[in-house]
Amino acid sequence: MAAIKNILLVGVGGQGTILASKILSSGLVMAGFDVKMSEVHGMSQRGGNVSTQIRFGEKVYSPIIGKGEADLIVAFEKMEALRWLEYLKKGGKMVINDYEIPSAPILMGKVAYPQGIIEELAAKADISVFKAAEIATGLGNSKMMNVVLLGALVKALNVPGIDWEQVIKDNVKANFADLNIKAFNMGLAQV
């Protein structure tokens, strides 16, 4: 049986992790994989952290993974990369958006946003870091950050034979398709 691959998308409510994981899982289904995708939401819209787990292979049983099992973690926010580090498999890869969203205790000035996260993660794992927000803003729409990150994810994942441009077209509004594909391709070039 082909080994199951585990991907973890982590971020903060409102960052668009759900759409990115939806596009990703549609592509994997089209490629003929058995796919399970699990998300924890509920209070995510109220500033909490969000995570989506995607597992694919010949036959997937559990919809969720445990610690040390993710082949790839894509963090939409820097501190979330640190929070989920223990889910990374030894030898796994991390794609990190160099972007900070302070949480409530930080906003209130009770604690500082941790410094040196990237250096710490670089010492522990194989990481790719870039500023997806700047790329998205450069495209004229900061909301495209999630699709830029999806591009980087797909590159890092390296599953051949999937027509991602078509998958994107199938999953976004027609008048945004070109912009999304552009954002996706810029993400591809980052890893």
């Binding site: 409510g13 109220r46 979330e80 640190l82 580090l85 409530a104 710490e120 522990k124 794992a125």
Partner: peptide
Amino acid sequence: AVTSEMAAVVRPPT
């Protein structure tokens, strides 16, 4: 698991 001494600050819903 890959671990770190550095801790992420909690992100409670608000």
